[in-house]
Design a protein around this nucleic acid. Structure first.
Lengths: 188, 188
DNA sequence: AATTTACGTCAGTCATATTGACTTAATTCT
DNA sequence: AGAATTAAGTCAATATGACTGACGTAAATT
């Protein structure tokens, strides 16, 4: 067994069923409305966990964490991005970014250059090494996505893209679509 | 503007394009193989962020975090679960769970009862309050999922379920399918 | 009777995030 | 030209959620 610690020889969890509330786990009884369905929620939880797990393993060798990955990813995707814009994408504070960014710069993964027109700016770029690492991490995730998609009916990726886009807060979608340049045409 | 701090009046990010590496962001040039595509990766990132954002806001009022949510969720889903099994699902250590669980117990959200057959066990149950909170959080996420699904072609949810399942490490799938009882029949 | 299991706890550490205040330099506004 | 704003960085303190390693106790299993 890998990591998860189940005991498949025991009755699959839940040995108790004594209290008041009708003891149906995802109970279709006393619940809010028309039977909560948990499957998508839980699938998303586990899928995302494993999705981020691949890069995490590689990053660990560099003594980097997920925060470094996010910064590296968006800098590599947006060469010359301003610190302020990066903060906006990541929705973290300057102070949080500060430490992580410094480590990436010190490690020769990210480079800062003065802005052309605005000399207050420190535009961010990946170095060649940094770009290589970013590509490495991205292709791990890409491979997982490809493996998950093969075997699904034609047009599934389109459906999944639309689904994911619509999971995002409507107000945030325009900016994200802009970020993901390849999807300008995606039907909402 | 909500939260993301873009400047739509500026050229949509990236003002620089000077260095060596062909400055195509997701470069179809020098990259590993057949053009990395970033859209699904980024959609998943933002979708998951907003998906967890709804519960986070509610939990903040209780002074709880995402760790509490995960514990609450899986205890509510598996009434009478053993501490050991919960650790296995969450893939965290006893010590990490300890603090969070204690807070949930102190707040009257989760209840511990001695095992029937095995008196070493502290089986975990949500209290009525805890169950109510769990339902509350779940329905927020459920609503977001429903909003994302309406308008998609028939059978989309099936495709998405299969996709998400296949994003999970193959070794972990059996246990997860067992956890998500409603999906026993899901075609791999 | 010895071993293993379930649970808890003590103590220390780390990574990632937060808030608030303040500085410097550069740009923009009036 | 002077005032206000913006970009970036920094100091200091704090919180959360995770980790390791070690140890203890009670109950079950072998």
């Amino acid at each position: 067994m890998t990591d998860v610690n189940f005991k498949p020889d025991q009755p699959p969890l839940r040995q108790g069923a004594d209290k008041a509330r009708t003891q149906q786990p995802g109970g279709s009884e006393s619940d809010s409305a028309d039977t909560l369905s948990y499957d998508l929620i839980e699938l998303l939880f586990f899928a995302y966990r494993d999705f981020t797990g691949d890069p995490d393993d590689v990053l660990a060798k560099y003594e980097f964490g997920r925060a470094h990955h996010r910064v590296l990813h968006f800098v590599d995707r947006n060469p010359g991005i301003m610190v302020t814009d990066l903060l906006g994408i990541l929705r973290i504070t300057k102070q949080s970014l500060g430490r992580v960014l410094k480590q990436l710069v010190d490690a020769g993964i990210i480079e800062q250059r003065e802005g052309h027109h605005d000399r207050r700016q420190r535009l961010l770029y990946t170095t060649d090494r940094g770009h290589a690492l970013a590509v490495d991490l991205t292709s791990l995730q890409q491979k997982r996505l490809e493996r998950a998609l093969i075997g699904l009916p034609d047009g599934s990726d389109e459906i999944i893209r639309r689904f994911l886009l619509r999971m995002i807060d409507p107000e945030a979608r325009p900016q994200i679509l802009q970020l993901i340049r390849s999807l300008y045409d995606l039907k909402d």
